[in-house]
Design a protein around this nucleic acid. Structure first.
Lengths: 341, 341
DNA sequence: CTGAAAGCGCTTACAG
DNA sequence: CTGAAAGCGCTTACAG
């Protein structure tokens, strides 16, 4: 392995000139630059990562901490890990993955050993032990998701409350007065994931603000559990004409199967909105109106915020990414209104 | 941040003694050890990762390279990433995640800069560009999966051929003489994933060796595509009595739905085996006999093999993890045999 | 059982 | 525009 001395010798310059030529931190003569570039290429030189870390006090590594306990639905979380990793590369950062019990223990470890320049926190619960740790750790960090206590933290996430409000408003604007929310399975709320609570709260608040009657139910396991939750909603509101789905893909697919089985037409009999979904709802039958949960936008912003902190800017604050509603034909004016015409 | 000099001063010893006390690489006096331990605790000392890398030429980081292109079914791949990460921690290694186009570019980068001590290659295709790169790179590496050309490589994987053979033998032993294999969607084979090919080849070879007629079909998209593939199998062999599923969870679930719809009883009318599945087949109705694809065992072995290479042992070779058949009541003697009793 | 010192390969003031 | 040198914080022969 060639080192910086080999390059300097081959190019006939000092090692500092090589270093500056590579970092671009000072201007280099045309001829010198060329000779260095040639030497680097011929020797296949790459700066040694450890030496660089030690000398520069930068590692160019982020920790991504994500418990990813088996209960979490992986495709959605995986999308965030990938999106963060891709966004990090745009700033020349690599990503170290801390999962399961290492999500907390490893965070302490890599922060204390200065293995990483910053931290991105995924899959945060309402009362997440990592947020407390971050406050002691004094390392640039961004939380994706909004825990209950955001003090001293930089947080960024899709605005789930606004997304819920948008869904309700959409239905209300179409004249619906009895609507339902099919949420995530009970365990998700119990474990304290932050966003399902935010969505549900936003949904109920918006409904009451807009004078719409709202019911809420959580699916049990498998198609049977989904059926039970739907039954619960229709029992609470027999004349329910609008349904918002805030749950994972298999459950939403199951809902559409069950509705089809029962001859409930979407949107003629029931308007359905898929809210904060990280998958493609246009492949459903019928395609569903959706407020997408786009990992990319949030993760790019999160990486930007860590980078800014590393550069010394940015104080603690919460940043909400606005949701966007996409129509795909699964909502329509409330049936009896049309009948009344 | 306290450094090793602070600890040495506080403990009244030299920095080399601190270093040795922490690494355990030479014996330390009882009293000295205690004073160092106290100083470390009081100062919250953690060795600086960059300094350690530079001095020791070890980084204690593995690269995990996994393209994870959107077509891959994430839960299965995620399980491998998690299993490798967990296994790596047992040897005090962290994991750097290289995905998408970085799976190859990043591999070159982190190897050349000595950011990682070793590499674990996931999601390898039959003709994977990373295998060629590994041969030039001269870095300890283990491939999980078996590419077409394994020269100079260390590879480890579940023995998919043996798993296929076990499935066929199981059915043959029960008297089945017409069996089918429902594989992965066509794109998976086309993209060159290595294991579906190995399974299919093993299946067809075993069938012909055991004198069993075998048909193969690939599901299209969604329940409709699965239905078509099943139709294809039953068309090719109207008297098919055994079915092996080597595909992802949603497809297997769909198969069982369709069979139930058609009144095909499992196992009375059709024996079904779920082969090389990384999910829980006992939650299906009915629970399926399964040869599990356990990420843990393969990944633990992969990490061991990298660690051994780093230590200087281990030449290139291919290691196959033997499959294990679990009965859950979805196979039975062939129907006409029982009727004939 | 312990210490003084070299050295890992960079970056970055300092100097010209 | 370029160089000589200090220094980042460790590990590990070398020596006793």
């Amino acid at each position: 392995m060639a080192n910086i001395h080999d390059v300097a010798k081959a190019a006939g310059v000092s090692i500092s000139t090589v270093s500056y030529a590579l970092s671009g931190k000072r201007s280099i003569g045309e001829e010198t630059r060329r000779r260095i570039a040639d030497a680097v290429r011929e020797l296949g030189y790459r700066p040694n990562a450890g030496a660089r870390m030690l000398a520069s006090t930068r590692t160019n590594i982020f920790a991504v901490t994500a418990p990813l306990h088996s209960g979490t639905y992986e495709p959605a979380h995986m999308a965030f890990v990938l999106a963060v990793t891709r966004a990090a590369r745009a700033y020349d950062y690599d990503v170290l993955l801390l999962t399961e019990d290492e999500a907390t223990k490893g965070l302490r470890r890599v922060a204390a050993s200065r293995l990483v320049d910053g931290v991105i926190v995924l899959d945060v619960s309402k009362d997440d032990e990592r947020t407390k740790l971050l406050r002691e750790l004094d390392i640039p960090a961004v939380v994706i998701g909004i825990p209950d206590d955001t003090e001293e933290l930089v947080c960024v996430d899709l605005d789930f409350r606004a997304a819920a409000e948008q869904s309700v408003r959409r239905l209300a604007d179409l004249g619906h007065r009895r609507i339902g929310l099919l949420g995530h399975p009970e365990q998700i709320y119990a474990r304290g994931s932050n966003f399902p609570h935010r969505f549900r709260a936003g949904f109920l608040d918006a409904a009451s603000a807009l004078g719409v009657d709202a019911a809420f139910a959580m699916p049990g396991h498998g198609p049977v559990g989904v059926r039970a939750a739907l039954d619960e909603l229709f029992e609470k509101q027999p004349d329910m004409t609008g349904l918002v789905l805030n749950c994972e893909e298999p459950i939403q697919a199951s809902v559409l199967d069950i509705l089809a089985d029962r001859g409930v037409r979407v949107p003629e009999d029931l308007s359905v909105i898929s809210a904060c979904s990280s998958f493609d709802t246009t492949r459903f039958h019928p395609p569903l109106d959706v407020i997408p949960l786009v990992a990319a936008e949030t993760c790019v912003r999160a990486v930007e915020l860590v980078v800014e902190q590393i550069a010394g800017a940015e104080g603690p604050h919460v940043e909400l990414v606005p949701p966007h509603y996409s129509e795909h034909g699964s909502t329509a004016p409330v049936p009896d209104l049309r009948d009344a015409r």
